[in-house]
Amino acid sequence: MARIVIPADYEHLSLAYEFVEAQAKALGLSNAEIYDIKLATDEAVTNIILHGYCGCEGEIQVDVEQHENALIVVLTDCGRLYDPTKKIAPDLNVPLSRRSKGGMGVYLMKKNLDQMSYQQTDDGRNRLTMVKKKALA
C-alpha cells in the first residue's frame, strides 16, 4: 500500500490526484481508466476541502492499494461528516441553460468508478473507498 497525507487545501489538490495517477500507471490501467480514477480522486478531495473542512485547516490521507485487477483508493479525513454517495445526481435531461452548476463531480465519480462506498470510522472520521477495475485483456 502507498500513502500520502496532504493539507486540505486547493494548493495541494493536484498532489493527491497525481499520486493516484502514478499508481494507476504502475498497475497498467488504460488511459481512460487512469483518467477515471484520477478524476474521482480529484472530485472527492475537492469535496472534502469544500464540504468537510469548509476552508478550515486539516489533512487528507490518501491510501492506494494495487491489486491484480483493480486499484483501490481510500481517502480518510477528520472534517465534518460528509457522505458523497448520498448526493443526488444532476438531471442531465434538463437543458444546460436551466441546469444547476453543481453536482457534476459526484455524478462523474459514480459513473466512472466500479465501486464507491462511504463509512464513518469508529473514531468519527470520514472514509471513502473508490475502486477502479482493470479491463481484462
Partner: peptide, 22 residues
C-alpha cells in the same frame, strides 16, 4: 486534464454569453 470544476467554468461562460435556446 480537466475536472468538473472546468465544466462548471464552461457552464458559467455558456450562460454569460447568452443567446441560448433550449
Amino acid at each position: 486534464y480537466m475536472s468538473s470544476a472546468g465544466f462548471k467554468a464552461m457552464h458559467s461562460i455558456y450562460s454569460m454569453l447568452g443567446g441560448i435556446t433550449d
